[in-house]
Simulated scan of single mutants.
Amino acid sequence: MTSPVIDTPAAGAGAAARAADLWKVYGSGEAQVIALRGVSVELERGRFTAIMGPSGSGKSTLMHCMAGLDSATRGQLAIGDTALNGLGDAGLTRLRREKVGFIFQQFNLLPTLTAEENILLPLAIAGRKADPQWFQTVIDTVGLGDRLGHRPNQLSGGQQQRVACARALVARPEVIFADEPTGNLDSRSGAEILGFLRRSVTEHGQTIVMVTHDANAASYADRVIFLADGQIVDELTEPTADAVLDRIKRLDVVATGASE
């Protein structure tokens, strides 16, 4: 069955992922929580986008909806030219397997598999084989050539996250979503992971969307989107850590004033 395709004048040809008037509501009545309020955003191909905001701002919900991990209450979502709306469980599973890569804070590696087996697992599940030349390029980029036979408990946290990054990249997905990828790492290991993500965009044209609360991590991105109360309230291009911190402080002042 052919996946539905979004065909609207507003749909950007250069978008790896997009949302249009996206709402996400949990619960009902007095227990109702509105996590996203009419968010519209396009994430360009071959770019590194960071999503920031205070706890409860909706940044992780936005990523989960755009990645097909959670359903929208209302609005349109697409990965490339494939609409997520109307896809059943099987269709969403196939889309995530073929077009989306994931990097999570907790690494999510299988302890009984070697680093190489963990990296190749999504392709194995899909019945596909890795392109040998691209696999070697990925391994060289993340510096894991001498660790492929090691299991996760034989690797440092930084090495485990590099395995997770390689796993996301080896299938050449349309877009990679990274949820606080350096949250469990020391500063040196975190810098290595962010450097790898930056190079994967600059040198290999990958598209990366990263949720983070860290201004230094966001400075590796091409664009930073700021959320508050389920809405996009600001954005910054070519960010520096200082510029991101300044923008966050200004948003905090606005939020404090609104609550008084």
Rank of each mutant, 00 (worst) to 15 (best):
T2G: 01
P4Y: 06
T8D: 12
A11E: 01
A11W: 11
G12V: 12
A13H: 08
A13K: 12
G14T: 06
A15P: 00
A15E: 09
A16E: 03
R18I: 06
W23I: 01
K24I: 04
K24N: 06
Y26V: 07
G27L: 05
S28I: 00
G29K: 09
E30D: 15
A31V: 07
V33A: 12
A35F: 10
R37L: 01
G38Q: 03
V39G: 07
V39W: 01
V41M: 10
E42Q: 08
L43A: 00
R45Q: 11
G46D: 12
A50I: 03
I51Q: 00
G53K: 08
P54C: 07
G56S: 02
G58E: 06
K59R: 00
T61D: 08
T61H: 02
T61V: 05
H64F: 14
A67E: 05
S71Q: 14
T73M: 09
T73K: 04
G75Y: 06
Q76D: 15
L77E: 01
I79G: 07
G80P: 03
D81G: 09
T82S: 09
T82K: 09
T82A: 09
A83H: 10
L84C: 09
L84D: 06
N85Q: 11
D89A: 08
R97E: 06
R97H: 09
K99H: 14
N108M: 07
N108W: 01
L110W: 14
T112C: 03
T112L: 11
A115D: 10
L120T: 05
L121E: 12
P122W: 02
P122Q: 04
A124S: 13
I125F: 13
R128P: 00
D131V: 04
P132F: 02
W134F: 11
F135V: 00
F135C: 12
Q136E: 13
V138M: 00
V138I: 15
D140H: 14
T141D: 09
T141A: 14
G143R: 03
L144M: 14
R147D: 00
R147K: 15
G149I: 12
G149E: 13
R151K: 15
P152A: 09
Q154V: 01
Q154W: 04
L155F: 05
S156I: 06
Q160K: 15
V163Q: 04
A164Y: 07
C165I: 13
R167G: 00
L169K: 10
A171S: 14
P173T: 07
E174D: 11
E174S: 10
V175N: 10
I176E: 02
P181D: 05
N184T: 11
A191S: 14
E192L: 14
E192Q: 15
F196N: 08
T202F: 01
Q206C: 13
T207M: 02
V211H: 10
T212H: 10
D214Q: 06
A217L: 03
A218N: 03
A218L: 04
S219Y: 00
S219K: 00
Y220R: 03
A221L: 07
V224A: 02
L227A: 02
L227T: 01
D229L: 03
Q231D: 00
I232Y: 03
V233C: 02
D234T: 01
L236P: 05
T237L: 12
T237R: 15
P239H: 05
P239G: 08
P239K: 08
T240G: 14
A243T: 05
D246Y: 05
R247Q: 13
I248Y: 03
R250E: 15
D252I: 08
V253L: 13
T256R: 15
T256D: 13
A258M: 08
A258K: 13
